Structure formats: C-alpha cells, structure tokens
Simulated scan of single mutants.
Amino acid sequence: MLSRLRVAAVVVGFSSAWTIAQAEAHERVLRFGYLFAQTSQLGAGAERFAAEVAKRTGGGYRVELYPNGSVGGEVEMAEELRLGHLDLAFITSAPFSSIIPEFGVFDIPFLFRDARHAHAVFDGAIGQDYLRKFQQKGLVALAWGENGMRHITNSKRAVTGPEDLRGLSMRVPQSDIMLAGFRSLGVKAEPLAFPALYGALQSGQFDGQENPISVIAASRFEKVQKHLTLSGHVYSWAVVVMSRAAWEGLSAADQKAFTEAARAAGQVSREVAGRAETEGVDALRSSGMSVVAGIDRAAFEQSLQATTAEFSARFGAETLRQIKAVR
C-alpha cells in the first residue's frame, strides 16, 4: 500500500512539473527597455504594461522590464527595435527629432500652454497622425505616454527671465530644435546621453540641465543642483514602441491586448508625471533646492522670436497654428 502511495506521489509530482513546463513553454517572453529608474513615470507605466499584457493574454506573454538604460540609451533602443533585437521600449521624445525630423515640431519652446494642452493635441487627430509616422522607421507605436513638462535646474543662480540663462553651460537632449532654442538665449548648450548626466553635473562639466520634475527627483539631481525654475518650456512626450517583428508575431487578438495595455501604461505615466509637478516640487524644496515658481514667459517668447520664426518656416506656420489652436 505504501509503495503504491509513493508511486502515486511521484506520478502526481511528475504531472505537476510537466504542466508547469508546458505552461512555461507556451509563455513567450518579451524584453521591454526604458531609460529611467523603476520609480519614475516610465517605470510606473512599464510595470502597468507588463501586468496588463499578462492579464489580457491569459499569461501567454511575459514582459521582462529593463530599467535605467540597461539595454542602452534611447537612440540605441530605437535602433535595436528597428533591427528586431529588442521587443518593446518606453522612449521619451528626446531622440526622435533626429530619427523622424517631423517630430522636432514638438520640441519648439513654449509651443504648449501646459500639459493639458499637450494631452489634447496628442490624444486628438494630430497625435494619431504622428503616431503613424513611426512606421517610416519600421517601428510600431502603440500609445502615447508622458515624460512631463521640462523645467530648468542649475548650480549657479536663480532663473526668472531669459537674461539669467546667458552664459550658463547646460546639458540639453539630442534635439537640434532644443539646442537651437537654448543657444539663441545665450546658453552654452550641448547634448549628452542621459546616463552620463549626473556625473557631468557633479563634476561641473555643466552648470545645469532641464528635465521633468519626476526625472529630476528620481535621479536625485537636488544633490548636484541648487536652483530649480518651473519653466515648463517644452512638453516631453513618451511613447510605447514595439519592433515590427514582434508586432507581426502577435495574433490580431493579442495585438489588441498589447495596444490596450500600452494605453493603460501611457495613462499611468501621465498620472505619475502630474503628481510629481506638485508633490515632487515640494520634496525638492524640502531637500534644499531654491524654487522659482514662475517665469516671465512673455520675455522668453520675445527673446526666442527670431528662432521661432525659423521653426515656423521649417515645420510650416499652419502646423504650428493648428497645434496652438487645440483646446
């Protein structure tokens, strides 16, 4: 009798192990990269995406998350997606104006009134049209997310007007539009990959930088920057992107599930970025940063007038008018 029980136990154990092995064999693993920490807005969105994919596909797919640029910077991730070496990524706006030039229009300083205005643009007809433009580079854009409104920090002085920026050295993303905008204000602006930014600020290579509050807080820039100016000069969008190879490997039902998961991820990233605009500023102030809560926006726009005219000629006055007219 005891021998039969032992045999039965072995059979049950083998059967359970076989069932698990079968489930794992049917589960497809996809790699998902993003640049910032797990506590960032992109991290929160990525976590939601992974959970939603598992739920909506009945466990058919498992999304492995790679934060902190562990699979490369954003330019590298975009190229890895194009080549099919990476499955998914949550990438900010920073690299795309050099990859798809039309996206440079969104880097024009003070184009958006605020984040609500930007949401209306990206969620509307304009945003849907631009979402399709990723196909030009062999990428499948699933949904818009958010990096946040970009704000200025520096180690030298409070910035309230354009004259306060003159002579400062600042790291700016790899966007020729943002570089041109800051340089026209007298800033010694240079691009630098984000993973190297903290060290560059710490060493004094740059006086300042600009990023959304959630990135500033998650990256602990308050340790190497004294002054924060809530300039909101550029809205930094983000997008959940998939390689064409990975997308075409999905069934129609799974493509729908992934798209819905990406929309949920995008919404979470917006919520986290939005909370950071209030809670994050308070935390940075408490940590010792000096905060300038408002700028002379009209003075900045006046100082940028010649450069903005060049941008208008480059991207089309009607395009800028349509974006600004969205309510």
Score class of each variant (00 low, 15 high):
residue 193 A to F: 04
residue 207 D to V: 03
residue 206 F to E: 03
residue 150 R to L: 07
residue 173 P to H: 01
residue 149 M to K: 04
residue 188 K to R: 13
residue 142 L to P: 06
residue 194 F to N: 05
residue 148 G to Y: 03
residue 130 Y to R: 06
residue 188 K to T: 04
residue 117 H to D: 06
residue 137 K to D: 09
residue 211 N to S: 09
residue 110 F to T: 05
residue 176 D to W: 10
residue 152 I to C: 09
residue 184 S to W: 12
residue 120 A to K: 14
residue 171 R to C: 07
residue 210 E to F: 14
residue 138 G to T: 14
residue 170 M to F: 11
residue 142 L to I: 13
residue 203 S to K: 07
residue 200 A to E: 08
residue 178 M to E: 15
residue 108 I to C: 02
residue 159 V to F: 04
residue 204 G to M: 10
residue 181 G to Q: 11
residue 113 R to P: 04
residue 143 A to M: 14
residue 116 R to H: 13
residue 121 V to S: 01
residue 108 I to W: 00
residue 113 R to W: 05
residue 154 N to T: 02
residue 127 G to S: 12
residue 104 G to N: 02
residue 209 Q to M: 12
residue 153 T to F: 04
residue 195 P to N: 08
residue 119 H to Q: 15
residue 121 V to N: 01
residue 166 R to D: 12
residue 107 D to S: 12
residue 159 V to T: 05
residue 121 V to M: 06
residue 116 R to N: 15
residue 139 L to R: 02
residue 151 H to I: 08
residue 147 N to L: 09
residue 189 A to T: 02
residue 179 L to K: 06
residue 161 G to D: 11
residue 100 I to P: 04
residue 177 I to H: 02
residue 130 Y to C: 09
residue 197 L to M: 05
residue 195 P to K: 07
residue 195 P to H: 05
residue 182 F to N: 02
residue 173 P to R: 04
residue 208 G to H: 04
residue 208 G to I: 04
residue 141 A to I: 11
residue 193 A to C: 01
residue 154 N to Y: 01
residue 132 R to N: 13
residue 101 P to A: 10
residue 172 V to E: 09
residue 114 D to I: 13
residue 193 A to V: 10
residue 133 K to W: 14
residue 183 R to P: 07
residue 196 A to N: 11
residue 148 G to H: 07
residue 121 V to W: 07
residue 157 R to K: 14
residue 141 A to M: 11
residue 159 V to H: 00
residue 170 M to Y: 09
residue 144 W to E: 12
residue 187 V to G: 06
residue 172 V to K: 01
residue 106 F to W: 02
residue 138 G to F: 12
residue 144 W to V: 11
residue 202 Q to M: 10
residue 130 Y to N: 03
residue 195 P to M: 09
residue 125 A to I: 13
residue 149 M to W: 06
residue 170 M to I: 07
residue 149 M to V: 05
residue 145 G to N: 12
residue 155 S to Y: 02
residue 183 R to H: 11
residue 187 V to D: 02
residue 122 F to K: 08
residue 178 M to W: 03
residue 111 L to N: 00
residue 105 V to P: 00
residue 182 F to W: 10
residue 128 Q to L: 09
residue 154 N to C: 03
residue 210 E to I: 04
residue 119 H to Y: 15
residue 106 F to D: 00
residue 139 L to I: 14
residue 140 V to Q: 12
residue 114 D to G: 12
residue 125 A to K: 15
residue 200 A to Y: 06
residue 100 I to Y: 05
residue 183 R to Q: 13
residue 178 M to S: 14
residue 207 D to L: 06
residue 127 G to Y: 09
residue 152 I to L: 15
residue 129 D to M: 13
residue 186 G to L: 11
residue 109 P to R: 08
residue 201 L to G: 00
residue 157 R to I: 08
residue 211 N to M: 12
residue 185 L to C: 15
residue 193 A to Y: 04
residue 149 M to S: 11
residue 122 F to C: 06
residue 143 A to T: 13
residue 119 H to F: 15
residue 181 G to E: 08
residue 152 I to P: 00
residue 208 G to V: 01
residue 144 W to K: 10
residue 189 A to K: 02
residue 141 A to H: 10
residue 172 V to S: 12
residue 117 H to L: 08
residue 179 L to I: 08
residue 128 Q to I: 03
residue 122 F to D: 03
residue 198 Y to R: 12
residue 163 E to W: 07
residue 198 Y to E: 09
residue 166 R to N: 13
residue 207 D to W: 04
residue 159 V to W: 00
residue 152 I to R: 01
residue 150 R to S: 13
residue 172 V to Y: 02
residue 178 M to C: 06
